[in-house]
Design a protein around this nucleic acid. Sequence first.
RNA 1: GGGACCGUAGUGAACCGGUCAUCACGUCUCCCUGUCACGGAGAAGAUAGCGGGUUCGAUUCCCGUCGGUCCCGCCA
Length: 463
Amino acid sequence: MKMKNRTLILDCTKKIGENVTIYGYIQTRRDHGKILFLDVLDRSGLIQVVVSKGAHLRGVGQTESKSHLGGEISPQDVVTISGKVNKRPPNLVNKNIPTGEIEIAAEKIEVLSKAEELPFDMGGKDLDLQLPTLLDYRSLTLRHPKVKQIFKVQATILEGFRKISKELGCVEVVVPEIAVSSTEGGAEVFKVDYFDHKAFLTQSPQLYKQMLVPVFERVFTIAHAYRAEPSVTTRHLAVATQLDCEFGFVDFEELLDLLEKAGTETLKFAEAESKDVFKEWNLETIAFGSSRGAGEAGKIPRLTLREAQELILKEFKRDNTKEKDLTPQDEIDLCTWAKNVHKSDFVTITHFPTQAKPFYTMPDPKNSEYSLSYDLLFRGVEVMSGSQRINDYFQLVDSIKSRGMDPKNFEMYLQAFKYGMPPEGGFSFGLERMTMHVFKLANIREAALFPRDMERVDIRLNK
RNA sequence: GGGACCGUAGUGAACCGGUCAUCACGUCUCCCUGUCACGGAGAAGAUAGCGGGUUCGAUUCCCGUCGGUCCCGCCA
């Protein structure tokens, strides 16, 4: 079969009166007896195909004449259809689709791949399934137009991040995801058998992107982060995708500007590229903060952890002022406050306790109890975190020791510092979390193509 | 790791201590040349997750078990 003669469905709008051949998937069929309507979908869009059953349909496989009448065509069948593109009569135009002014009068229909009976109805505007069903049939449910749109937007987030990172002078790097005998601390790690040696999957690209700062000064990487935390929540995955930047020769204030710029520019790009999806899903536009003055760009409110906790006490009457981190409810309330007061879906929180942050985090020189660290909250959840890093070799070794870890296990990493490391820092966005909150999804698993959690790796795991 | 709640046709939901467990979508048969989530008529499809208990009688109440969802903790 030759597909050179293929016309993309959306391009049919420019081929009125011409004969075309389209390739795609059956979305719905509406059988009116002597006339049959098929909605056919390809990567460009959807078109209505009209099959007049009284008419003679030519084509191969005359013995399967029934299928040529559309009798055996059912949803998700992969088909090729040839026919003439006709302008619809004015009273039959469908204003809801880009191809609503045309339709194809089928002359030949061929089923290239027959789909089994579907386990649920895919033809509706929404896919109304419980989460386990949605994931048990993931390779099928991803085809649904509205599910697909989640990942089309996710792709624009990736593209937006790459774009702004390059604009900020970062070089894209790819870093290893298997490491040996040392961890950053914090989350549990997945152990792997590496040629009879113990190894683990990296919790983040953190250490490698830092090692590349003296090489390129500014780098970015898109990498998987593997976390073996035995936690089951709506916002955690065992494998998440991180969008990381790391910058040499920056101080804390510059880093704050950079992280806010990277976050807002990424999402501004994604939003601009996804206008159709925002409309289809009826998504709220993202609030990037009110301007503080003429000519000044949008501003995201910045608070230290302690200031944020004071605000929670004052505005929401909950005393968490002694806690070392924000609670999930605190994050929700702070974003509500930022939205109301600053017209921002974002809040930057800085100066978390040094002890609560990883060893590479720079303590605040003014008060080492707190660190030069920050989280970016977006719509009630942390979507990014980062910090100014310790760049002095001896201070870094002391920090590793102070957390009960052995500097010998960080030999390659420390080498980068031993031979000269500029003042540096960076940050890391969670791709699935950003996607989740752009769409306001209830569970992060819906924002991952093939989510991994404690109970599932594609299929449900046996206990 | 702690807690709360939920398991009913393929899917999503409803109801109920008492004769035949209800509805929508999907499926099958038939009707329909203009629908676009088409419409109309009919049919099939469920030992109510599993095990035990209370009761004259349990899908319904209780206990256990398995599975799931959510919240907290941990974590990003």
